[in-house]
Design a binder for these strands. Structure first.
Lengths: 250, 250
DNA sequence: GCCGGCAGTTGATCTAGATCAAATCGTGAT
DNA sequence: ATCACGATTTGATCTAGATCAACTGCCGGC
């Protein structure tokens, strides 16, 4: 298990290391990629934020924020996929969201997190101190607006998944997830799409409210019906996205 | 089926009627009840909003916003319960949220609604023209902030329901819903609580991703185990909220 | 008071998906 | 190359909840 970012000490150490090395810890690259946070800030603010923020590589499986913990930072995803998880005391677990670059991670205005955020793939994030960003949010309506927009987007997504969880069959669920990932992954031609699954079968099951066996069966079902082809477990090819979409029936 | 609010014509007519009658269509009562919108506005803004807004009684079952439609207004719930629904082309249906006074209804910045909002009980709402409120949102960071807060609250709720839909048993689901309603309903003593269900068995089923038969069976199960008692289908008494909470196992 | 219809309950059966139990496949260490 | 182990697939059963089918209780109209 890779180590988690557990406290601001952890971050501060890393940060000062970087400063000592004289590496520019700027957020300009975020802006270049239209990072949710950085796109809304003036260049003065960007410079200040850059001085106190930190770009950080995260291994797959590393926890960014733990459920029930108080986190003193926010992040912006620069690369990779982050999964948001809720677990019950008895161990049952549900993934309640997937986030991709350049999404913002963290719940503004509330310190304690009701869910954990964990890198699903190797990832890179830009870490901001909570206090500083909270101040900038209050001072910058445009930033507030950006984050509000993202919250609404996530809300729409969450509700779409509620429909999937509550009312779709196992096959429709798996097709929905493949469709979601395909449309958020990079390399797609006109109709055909190929991508790497950022999630293991177990994680897919936890996202869809199924078991790994059912996920596996439905994947081979989709393969046998020619909607997808599977190479090396993780790599999926969708010859015709329309066919995949039909399996969702929505 | 009671008539829906279908267009701004509909609202404008009603509004001018009220104006002609000289009835003060103010939003002060919203403020008194800490309406999400009105609490964040200056008295000047409140007066302007009041001049263009409309308090309206809604019968149970009346649709406030239709899925897929373009709505030219927002509302604030003043009394009653509103359910947010998604339906699939084949008729399968999922309730994706319940809203109580003084929640805000409508998706800021996006005209087309991906879900329908329908009064679950007789209700009263305060209706605002979209253009005016959008302008006020951009001009008033505090209002933006209020709406952002509500969006985050709804997001938390949606994710909590994702866990319920994906990983809880039928009995836990029903207990969760009763608990949700009990904690949002009014009259509760120290531990014991009594309330009217704002939802029919069919609606509960659509909320929990179950069938009405299963909901009914689980309700009688909870009744027989002494956790709740049921009078007249709709009226529920929970002698001990802790017992109900235990059934949720979270 | 009687009738009709809808909402809810209860019962009998069926099935999608869970659970239990082996195979395989892949990958990284030796 | 070989081994070991975790991830995945596949197969055989089991079961929670769906489906199908009565039945009951509650109004509202006549």
């Amino acid at each position: 298990m890779p180590d988690a970012i557990e406290s601001d000490q952890d971050m501060d150490v890393a940060h000062s290391e970087v400063l000592e090395l004289g590496i520019p810890v700027a957020c300009r690259s975020c802006q270049a990629r239209h990072g949710v946070v950085c796109g809304a800030l003036s260049s003065t603010q960007l410079r200040e934020l850059g001085r106190h923020s930190l770009r950080r590589k995260i291994d797959a499986g590393c926890e960014i924020v733990a459920q029930g913990s108080e986190s003193s930072f926010y992040s912006n995803i620069m690369r990779g996929v982050v999964k948001l998880c809720k677990v019950m005391p008895d161990g049952r677990q549900q993934i309640v969201g997937l986030q991709f670059a350049p999404d913002f991670v963290g719940r503004p205005f509330v310190r304690e997190s009701t869910l954990s955020a964990e890198a699903a793939t190797d990832a890179e994030i830009c870490v901001f101190p909570r206090n500083l960003l909270d101040r900038m949010i209050s001072e910058t309506p445009e930033l507030q607006r950006s984050l509000h927009d993202q919250a609404l987007k996530e809300l729409d997504a969450a509700r779409e998944w509620m429909l999937t969880l509550g009312r779709r069959t196992a096959e429709e669920k798996v097709a929905s997830l493949l469709y979601l990932i395909a449309t958020h992954a990079e390399p797609q031609t006109a109709t055909s799409t190929a991508f790497d699954l950022p999630l293991s079968r177990a994680e897919i099951a936890d996202f869809l409210g199924l078991t790994i066996e059912t996920v596996s069966r439905q994947m081979t079902r989709l393969r046998k019906s020619g909607v997808i082809s599977i190479e090396n477990f993780r790599h999926i090819v969708v010859p015709d996205m329309d066919e995949l979409e039909k399996k969702i029936s929505a």
